[in-house]
Nucleic acid binder design. Structure first.
Length: 411
RNA sequence: GUGGCUAUAGUUUAGUGGUAAAACUCCAGUUUGUGGAACUGGUAUCGAGAGUUCGAUUCUCUCUAGCCACCCCA
């Protein structure tokens, strides 16, 4: 018989309980902050018809970087590489029933078929926050505010990250002044997107090649960019700056675009990004629906929180481990456990039959905060010595006192 | 898709052309009511396949996986 490998599939992660606890913590913060701004959660299948992504972009590269296969009914199916087309499809499908403006969020897992590297895996989870139905810049400020508050809730200080914003409209104006057609404009955008990866001279040289003449990018915020910065400043968000090199790679953005950067000079990386895409829903026919949103990937969140030492330490979701002294005590132990569960505690019983010492050892290794032994003494007296493993202090309590005692200490 | 580096116990690492060490972890004990200590013992077809060789974990090739960079960026 061939041995199966225990390795996970290339580029995807296993979440052992300690990893899952981190993931749960991250998701909890994402949900709490999104919901505090009135965003409601939605979900959808991982599978989408392949044409959903082809429609959006003619680039074959995009299609090569997806997991796409043919199902038994000869349909081309893709594992979603991003959530925006899905949410656009959902909104477009029920446009007349939904009440706008619509504030929606989701934390889907997304897939891309490419070589894994630092910060980029084949499967990741990404918070998507989108606001549909508002044309004004209040909407842009609203979603940026959500992003800002998520980072603050994770414990980042305002000087540890920076929100860089720009508008596609500025780029459109410049392209118009230079008389560039659509394909030249796209070339220009892709060049600007790579600006920080090349030397200044090389960038200027290429800029001249595309534009046909020398020109420099704007250095001062203007128009809606300025307005958004001002609006955010009024709500107490002061780490927002204009940056003409923020353009985002995607075709569908139409207005404000933004990216949040880690300010640590060791790793000045974009940690999240988004923008306005007012025309995207027209691919489903019908009139357009203004929309603005952003995506925030879990791999990047973890890396950033880890680098600032902001990840919580692991504790078990189990409150108490009960160790029966011997098999004769099993029955009493399990009924005590059931009583405590009804009182709201998460309780595990150590049925291993090993020594009491081993029971304590395992409870501690599992990071369970409390343990108690049930033996003949306890059964006859009705009093239990509950031990807090971290401090090793023992407290003698009656069964009905245990739940409130534990809850009081674990909060 | 392209390139570079890597691959030895569960983990982190030694090491050699003649079948492998250490630390920590884990498991079992040290004669049965309280853990994080100590002691004893156990745990590796040296990533997979092929080649060179009397003989390869050690050299060569292929594959796979990991890390990193590029490409691209959701």
């Amino acid at each position: 018989m061939t041995k199966l490998t225990t390795e996970s599939y290339k580029g995807v992660r296993d979440f052992y309980p300690e990893d899952q606890a981190v993931q749960n913590y991250i998701f909890k913060v994402l949900r709490e902050v999104s919901e505090s701004f009135g965003y409601v959660e939605y979900g959808a299948s991982i599978l989408e018809p392949a044409e959903l992504y082809r429609a959006k972009s003619g680039d074959e590269i995009v299609n090569e970087q997806t997991y796409t296969f043919t199902d038994r009914g000869e349909r081309e199916v893709t594992l979603r590489p991003e959530m925006t087309p899905t949410v656009a499809r959902m909104v477009a499908a029920k446009k007349r029933e939904l009440s706008f403006p619509l504030r929606w969020y989701s934390i889907p897992n997304l897939f891309r078929y490419e070589r894994p590297q630092k910060g980029r895996l084949r499967e990741h989870w990404q918070l998507n926050v989108d606001l549909f139905g508002l044309e004004g810049i209040e909407a842009d400020a609203d979603v940026i505010s959500v992003a800002y508050n998520i980072l603050r809730k994770f414990g980042l200080k305002e000087n540890q990250f920076e929100i860089k914003i720009n508008s596609r409209k500025l780029l459109d104006e410049e392209a118009k002044e230079l008389g560039l057609d659509e394909s030249k404009k796209k070339e220009l955008r892709l060049l600007i997107d790579k600006k920080n990866k090349m030397e200044v001279d090389e960038f200027n040289q290429k800029l001249k090649e595309i534009a046909g003449e020398t020109f420099s990018l704007k250095t001062e915020a203007s128009g809606e960019v300025l307005e958004v910065i001002e609006m955010l400043k009024k709500s107490g968000i002061t780490n927002v700056i204009f940056d003409s090199s923020i353009v985002r790679g995607f075709d569908y953005y139409t207005g404000i675009v933004f990216e949040v950067f880690d300010t640590n000079p060791e790793n000045r990386r974009a940690i999240l990004g988004g923008g306005r895409y007012d025309d995207l829903l027209t691919i489903f026919g019908g009139e357009k629906v203004p929309a603005v949103g952003f995506g925030f990937g879990d791999v990047m969140i973890r890396e950033v929180l880890e680098s600032y030492d902001l990840l919580p330490t692991y504790t078990s979701t189990t409150d108490l481990c009960i160790i029966p002294f011997n098999k004769n005590c099993f029955e009493h132990t399990s009924s005590l456990a059931m009583t405590l569960r009804k009182a709201g505690l998460a309780v595990v019983v150590d049925y291993s039959g090993k020594k009491v010492a081993d029971g304590f050892k395992k409870a501690d290794k599992d990071k369970i905060p409390f343990a108690l032994v049930v033996g003949e003494e306890e059964i006859s007296s009705g009093e239990y010595k509950i031990k807090e493993l971290k401090t090793t202090t023992e407290t003698k309590l009656k069964a009905e006192e245990i739940a409130s005692f534990v809850k009081h200490l674990t909060i």
